[in-house]
């Protein structure tokens, strides 16, 4: 088990290294940050001075090596735009992102799991077809569009919910639903197929042969088994939510890391983008390990393998 974890960590480090190279190079393709940082109509000398200040005049590979050596010391660099430590900037935005992702996850599970179970239990009936339509809508309607529709309906027409910003529960509702919408559909589909698998298993057959009421067969014997893959996916999705909330956070002006990434790209704030993307990568790696541990907690077959 230990050997397995060490091996997994090694592989994770290699992918993070590749990710750092990719994001480092891609950012530099977007253009020259000095142009955005200088006053309009600044002279070529001024621009050179700015480039020199941020070390952008050095060859690419020196810049990368310097970035990497600072990174190994835990230093993500200074933001070009905010002139503060990037990691501190990131940490200041993270709670808002986690709050949004948690709310979106709660929404997606509360909607996805029950509808998935009903669709599996009433397979090929009215409920199942309804669920399929819902899943199709969930997968095909982009989150920003859902967000804009909700703003139009609930903020502009009805005036029930604030269209942007943060601070109260009401501010959280629409961003959470637009971010959770797609995931509700994903979780519903997985719950349905996982439940169908389990319902066809021998132990569910035996549970019925024992004469258990159907409600108990489903809630006890089928549900817990069907939940394992859904929880795995949900754990990974929580981290993905933090990292794909860019569009939703921008639409609703939600002050999370997604918005920070958006600003970073818009201002060509290289350190901000590099840090946001890399930290997102680290989170995904960590959550994958955590999910494996959670698996072992639910499933005694893994727990006892030692």
């Amino acid at each position: 088990m230990k050997k397995y974890i060490v091996k997994r960590l090694g592989l994770a480090l290699i992918s993070l290294l590749l990710l750092s190279i990719t994001i480092f190079l891609l950012m530099r393709i977007t253009g020259d940050p000095a142009v955005l940082l200088a006053e309009p109509g600044a002279s070529a000398a001024d621009l050179d001075a700015i480039r020199q200040q941020f070390g952008l005049d050095r060859p690419l590979w020196t810049q990368y090596v310097s970035f990497l050596t600072h990174l190994l010391r835990g230093d993500f660099g200074q933001s070009f735009y905010y002139r503060t430590d990037v990691f501190e900037l990131y940490l200041s935005r993270l709670p808002a992102s986690l709050l949004l992702a948690s709310a979106a996850m709660a929404f997606s599970l509360l909607v996805g799991i029950p509808t998935g179970i009903i669709a599996a239990v009433r397979v090929n009936q009215w409920w199942d077809s309804g669920g399929k339509i819902f899943a199709l809508l969930g997968l095909s309607m982009p989150s920003f569009w859902v967000g804009l529709l909700m703003i139009l309906f609930f903020s502009v027409y009805l005036g029930w919910l604030p269209s942007s910003g943060s601070g109260t529960v009401f501010h959280l509702v629409m961003p959470a639903i637009s971010l959770g919408w797609l995931f509700a559909a994903v979780h519903m589909r997985l719950t349905r197929s996982s439940m169908l698998d389990v319902l066809g298993s021998e132990y569910v057959k035996l549970a019925r042969l024992k004469g258990l009421p159907e409600a108990l067969v489903i809630s006890k014997h089928a549900f817990k088994n069907a939940l394992i893959p859904v929880l795995t996916l949900a754990g990974i999705n929580l981290v993905i939510m933090v990292n794909v909330a860019v569009v939703v956070e921008t639409v609703f002006a939600w002050p999370g890391v997604g918005r920070l990434l958006y600003e970073g790209i818009a201002f060509r704030d290289f350190p901000v983008v590099q840090a946001t993307v890399l930290l997102g990568g680290v989170m995904i790696v960590v959550v994958n390990l955590l999910v494996d541990i959670l698996y072992a907690v639910i499933d005694p077959r893994i727990r006892y393998e030692g």
């Binding site: 035996l206 549970a207 024992k210 077959r301």
Partner: peptide, 22 residues
């Protein structure tokens, strides 16, 4: 349902898979 398992019981073809792992 009250007869199943109480008055008439059945052993399935695949005993290895008949028990719930959890």
């Amino acid at each position: 349902r009250r007869i199943r398992g109480k008055r008439i019981a059945m052993i399935l073809q695949d005993p290895m898979m008949s028990l719930n792992p959890l």
